[in-house]
Design a binder for these strands. Sequence first.
DNA 1: GCCATAGTACGACCGGCATCGAAACCGGAC
DNA 2: GTCCGGTTTCGATGCCGGTCGTACTATGGC
Lengths: 116, 116
Amino acid sequence: MARPRTAARTVEHPDLSEVSLQQVLEALVDPVRRMVVSQLAGAGEDKSCGTFDAPVSLSTLTHHLNVLREAGVIRQYYVGTAKLNTLRADEMEEQFPGLLTAVVDASAAESEAGVA
Amino acid sequence: MARPRTAARTVEHPDLSEVSLQQVLEALVDPVRRMVVSQLAGAGEDKSCGTFDAPVSLSTLTHHLNVLREAGVIRQYYVGTAKLNTLRADEMEEQFPGLLTAVVDASAAESEAGVA
DNA sequence: GCCATAGTACGACCGGCATCGAAACCGGAC
DNA sequence: GTCCGGTTTCGATGCCGGTCGTACTATGGC
């Protein structure tokens, strides 16, 4: 595969114009993935794979992160051994106005209600 | 079953406060159901079951309408032999602000782009 | 009463997705 | 070089939801 030795591992990210609404909705419909998105939105900071609080195994979590990345919801990049994740909130807002916000807000509202 | 003979057939609708975000997203993630919602939003008028343009059989369409109703997205009521469907847009907006709008708008934008 | 029309209920089939464990991998620390 | 922690890949499994056909019910018109 002629993998470059010197370059840091890179990750492919779709241009949001190539992502379908269907993909985004499928990405957001899974509760685990919505948890991830919520935690990213709430943290305000990038999180590495291992720092998510999700009731699944690590391999499953990796899968979910892949789905989110392919749907253009998150961006991933390597820093040393860690792989950090960040929301592509601004780009999403441009391509699907209000969508991510609505889901994150509703999700937050719901978990608040659950706590209260 | 002590089914009343004289009363018109009635349909059960959930209170939107009892509907979970999960349910709504699951309802909106299916392309056929999103078609239905888009057509309802676009028509501005109530549509009977048979008037939807969807690539599925009638029984499947009935199933989709049931899912949408149980998710609180649409309201159904009988008029003679017809069963009319209408969006619960206002209530949805209150319970899940911006969500339905974002999906419908994105859906419309996407199909426009497809046509263009 | 009888028929036509509109919609529904039921059961079956099938494909896809979430999930996991185990093994491989990679980069950095020592 | 060697080890380790973090992350990914792979294959297998199991479940859930979309789909359909058919049989059924209900309403309204004749």
